[in-house]
Amino acid sequence: MSVAGRVREKLMVGLKPTRLDVINESELHAGHRSSPGTGESHFRILIVSDVFSGKSRVERHRLVNELLKDELAGGIHALALATLAPGEALPRT
């Protein structure tokens, strides 16, 4: 299974989101000195989940990081997170 597939699966099971966007941005970083060149190292993730209700941004990110600890330790170089509870405004892009 691809890194993106494992990320999606773990977040779906762990957070039961109403929306989950996993965007592979690795091609934007190809050739950068710190990029591992795997094609699956840089991700942007948008998650909307009831689990985040009443939690701070730091607490939300810790939940995601814990779920993805194996991927973060062994291949994901950069992870941009937008973690929202239902009803919160989507970030501007």
Rank of each mutant, 00 (worst) to 15 (best):
M1T: 13
M1H: 11
S2Y: 00
G5N: 13
R6E: 15
R6L: 12
V7R: 03
R8C: 08
K10D: 07
K10N: 07
K10G: 03
K10F: 00
K10V: 05
M12Q: 15
V13A: 15
V13P: 05
G14C: 08
G14Q: 04
L15V: 08
K16F: 02
P17C: 06
T18L: 05
R19E: 14
R19W: 00
L20K: 08
D21A: 12
D21S: 10
N24V: 09
E25T: 07
S26K: 10
S26L: 12
E27A: 13
L28Y: 12
H29D: 14
G31Y: 00
G31L: 04
G31S: 05
R33D: 07
R33L: 13
S34N: 14
S34M: 13
P36N: 06
P36V: 03
G37C: 06
G39V: 09
E40N: 08
E40P: 05
E40A: 10
S41A: 14
S41N: 10
S41P: 04
S41D: 14
S41Y: 01
H42R: 06
H42V: 12
F43W: 02
F43Y: 14
F43N: 06
R44H: 10
I45P: 04
I45V: 15
I47Q: 02
I47M: 12
V48W: 02
S49K: 02
D50M: 06
D50Y: 00
V51Y: 03
V51D: 11
S53P: 00
G54H: 02
G54W: 01
G54A: 08
S56Y: 01
V58N: 12
V58F: 11
V58E: 11
E59K: 12
E59Q: 15
R60K: 09
H61T: 08
H61S: 11
R62F: 03
R62T: 09
L63S: 10
V64G: 09
V64H: 04
N65P: 06
N65C: 07
N65A: 05
E66C: 11
E66L: 12
L67S: 06
L68I: 08
D70E: 15
E71M: 10
E71C: 07
L72A: 07
L72R: 03
A73S: 15
A73Y: 02
A73W: 00
G74V: 02
G74S: 15
G74W: 00
G74F: 00
G75L: 07
G75N: 06
H77Q: 08
A78S: 13
L79H: 04
A80P: 01
A80I: 05
L81N: 05
L81D: 05
A82W: 07
A82S: 15
T83M: 04
T83W: 01
T83H: 01
L84Y: 02
A85K: 01
G87C: 07
G87Q: 08
E88Q: 15
E88T: 07
A89W: 01
A89K: 14
A89E: 13
L90H: 12
R92Q: 15
